[in-house]
Nucleic acid binder design. Structure first.
Lengths: 346, 346
DNA sequence: CTGAAAGCGCTAACAT
DNA sequence: ATGTTAGCGCTTTCAG
C-alpha cells in the first residue's frame, strides 16, 4: 500500500472491487487480476496505469475471495501459546522460513481463554494447507483426528506416528553436552535440579544420570526435585546450600529455574561462578543479557522453525510425515568456570 | 468438532462441502446452512440427522466462503508484538472481551521479520470489520491511511485524532500513585530512573517531578537517566550506590528496569526494602513471583483490553472514535517499606 | 493482450 | 419447514 486513497471524504462507504478498478482504468477485470497477482500477461504501461488507478481508488484485494477461488489457500497455520516466549521465537523464525516459499503463515493463539481445539479448528475452517502445532497438549488421538483435515506438524512432542510430522529438540544430547562441559572444566560434584513432570524433563534427567555414569561420576549423581519456574530454582538452590558439602556445579531444568538459583545464590552470598557454576537450558532471551550471561543449552529455535515449515511444505506436496530431531548446542557464557577446589578434588 | 470422521481411510481427498452433507442427509443445501449456523428454521429431528451426517462425513464449514458471502466478516483484527509479554496479556483479555459479542478476534504479529504495515494490511485484506493496534509505531499519517479502510483503535498511543480510537493507561496518575505511596511511608529522597525516549517515559518523568514538587519534596527530585531494560536498571542503581547519600527509594521506568536495580542491589549488598525501597511499573508477570514480590504500578490490562474491544465494536456500529484513559493502580508488595532513617529524616 | 463464461462454497432474500 | 434464485469478489480456462 502506497499513499492514501485520494477518494472518499466519507470513509468506508463501499470498498472498491476489482471491477471498479477495471472500469476506472478502462480494462477488463481479468487484466486487473493479472496485474494484482503480478503474473505475466500485461504490458508495462497498462500495468503502471492500472496500479495507479488502484492506488487512487484505495483498492485492496479481498483475500477471502482470492483464497476461496484458488483451491489452495497457500496458508500454513500455526498454533502457539501466548506468554511462552519460546513460542514467540519459533513463530518469528517460521515467518522467515516461510518467506519466499509462496506460502503465508497464519496464527492461532492458545491461551487460558482459548483452548487448543478452538485454535486448531479455526485454522482448519480457514482451510490452511497445513498446520504446525507448537507443543500441543491434546491427546494423540485428537491430533490424529485433525490430521485427517490437513497435514500436521507437531513441535516438541515425542510420540512417533506415521500420520503426523514431528520436530523436536534432542534433550538427551543437550543434557549430555551440559554435563560434559562441566566435567571438562574439572567439576565432579555436578547436581541437577530437574523439571519434575514437565515435558522433556524425563529425557534430561535420564541423560544426566547416564552421562554422569559414563564419565565415572556415578557416585556424584545428585538429583534435586525441581520444576520449570524461578521458585523451583530458589527452592532447589536452598536445598544445595544446606548441604555440608554443596556441589560445585548445577544444571537446571531450564533458564527460569536457573534464574531462581542465581537469585538464591546472590542472596546467600554464594559467588557464581567462582563457588558455584550454573548451567541453564533453553537460551531464553534473558539468559544472554549482559548482567546475566548464563551458560545454557540452546535449542536452536531457528533450525526447529525451519524444519517445521519445511516438513509442512513437504507434506503438502505429498511426502509422508517424518521425524526431525534438532541437535541443541551449549552456549558457554559467564556462569561456568573451573571449580575452586580443582586441585583438592583431583 | 466431535469424534473422528468415520469416512476416508485415505485422508484428504476432497473435503466434503455443504452440498455433500445435504445430499447424504436427503435435504437441501440451504437447510444444512441453517442448521450449521444454528439459526431457527429446521425441526429438531432434521437438525439431529443432518448434524450426525455432517459429523460422519467429517464436514467442517469453510470460513472463506462464509465470510465472503456475509458482507461483514464479524472479525476484529489485532496486531501485537511477539516477545512483548504485555501484548500477550492484552490479546488474551481481548479474547475474553470479544466472547459473546458475535465477533471473533484474528491475530497479526509484528516482529523483526514482519513489519507493522505487513501485519495491518494482512488484516485489511481479510476484510476485518475493525482493527486494534497494540502500541503501533507507525506515524500518525500512516494510521490515518489505514483508518480509511477499517475502524481503528490504537492502544498506548498519545495523539488524539477524530479518526482513530485511542486507549491508553494514565501514566501521570500511575507515577503519582507511586510517589505518594513512598512519601506516605516516610520517604523523602525518592529517585526516578527514567525510560529515556521510550513511549510513556516523558509523562512518567513529568508526573514524578510534579508530584515531588506538590508534596514539598522539590529539593529531593533526583532524575537518573535510564531506559526500559535490565541493563538500564543496573546502571542506574550503580549510579545511586556511588552517592555519598543514596536515596532511600527509587521508582523505575518499568519492571525490567526494576529487576536490574534489584540484581545490582543484591550484588552490592544493599538490602531491599530495608535500605532501599523499589517500585516498578507494569506489573509484568515476573513481578508477582514469590521470590520477587515487586511493588509496582499495574496498568490494568483487562480494562485496557475491554475498552479496546468495546470501542472497536462501537466504531463498527457507527459511533465516532473516542479516547479512553484507563486508570492504573499501585500494587503494593514486598519491595517497599518505611525508610530506615525515618526518625533522622523528619 | 483482452473478453466471455464458469464457478470456488457459502448465505440471503425470497418464494412455497 | 423447505426449496428457488441470486450472487459475495475473485481466479481459471479458453477463445479470440
Amino acid at each position: 500500500m502506497t499513499g492514501a486513497p485520494d477518494a472518499s471524504p466519507t470513509p468506508r462507504t463501499r470498498r472498491p472491487t476489482m471491477s471498479d478498478v477495471a472500469r476506472a482504468a478502462g480494462v477488463s477485470r481479468q487484466l486487473v487480476s493479472i496485474i494484482m497477482r503480478d503474473v505475466p500477461g500485461a504490458s508495462p504501461e497498462t500495468r503502471a496505469r492500472v496500479q495507479e488507478e488502484a492506488r487512487r481508488l484505495g483498492y485492496l484485494p479481498d483475500d477471502r475471495a482470492r483464497k476461496l477461488r484458488q483451491q489452495s489457500t497457500k496458508l500454513i497455520g500455526i498454533t502457539f501459546t501466548l506468554h511462552q516466549a519460546f513460542h514467540g521465537d519459533v513463530v518469528e523464525h517460521s515467518y522467515l522460513a516461510a518467506a519466499d516459499t509462496g506460502y503465508e503463515l497464519t496464527l492461532s493463539a492458545v491461551a487460558a481463554s482459548r483452548s487448543e481445539a478452538v485454535a486448531v479448528e479455526a485454522l482448519l475452517r480457514e482451510r490452511c494447507d497445513a498446520v504446525i502445532l507448537l507443543a500441543p497438549s491434546s491427546p494423540l488421538e485428537t491430533l490424529h483426528e485433525w490430521a485427517a483435515y490437513a497435514p500436521l506438524v507437531t513441535v516438541g512432542r515425542r510420540e512417533q506416528t506415521d500420520r503426523i510430522g514431528l520436530v523436536r529438540s534432542d534433550d538427551t544430547e543437550g543434557m549430555e553436552q551440559a554435563v560434559r562441559h562441566l566435567a571438562q572444566l574439572g567439576h565432579r560434584r555436578i547436581a541437577h535440579i530437574d523439571g519434575a513432570e514437565v515435558s522433556g524433563a524425563a529425557d534430561r534427567r535420564a541423560s544426566y544420570r547416564a552421562t554422569m555414569r559414563r564419565l565415572g561420576l556415578a557416585e556424584h549423581i545428585d538429583l534435586i526435585p525441581g520444576g520449570p519456574s524461578e521458585e523451583d530454582g530458589v527452592r532447589g538452590a536452598l536445598t544445595l546450600f544446606d548441604r555440608p558439602a554443596p556441589p560445585s556445579a548445577v544444571i537446571t531444568f531450564n533458564d527460569r529455574c536457573a534464574t531462581g538459583v542465581l537469585n538464591a545464590a546472590a542472596r546467600a552470598g554464594v559467588k557464581v561462578p567462582a563457588e558455584l557454576s550454573v548451567v541453564g537450558y533453553d537460551d531464553s532471551r534473558p539468559a544472554g543479557l549482559p548482567h546475566v550471561q548464563l551458560t545454557t543449552v540452546s535449542q536452536d529455535l531457528p533450525a526447529i522453525a525451519r524444519a517445521a515449515v519445511e516438513m509442512a511444505l513437504a507434506q503438502i506436496e505429498g511426502t509422508p510425515p517424518r521425524e526431525v530431531i534438532v541437535r541443541p548446542r551449549l552456549v558457554v557464557r559467564g556462569t561456568t568456570c573451573p571449580p575452586a577446589d580443582t586441585q583438592a578434588a583431583q
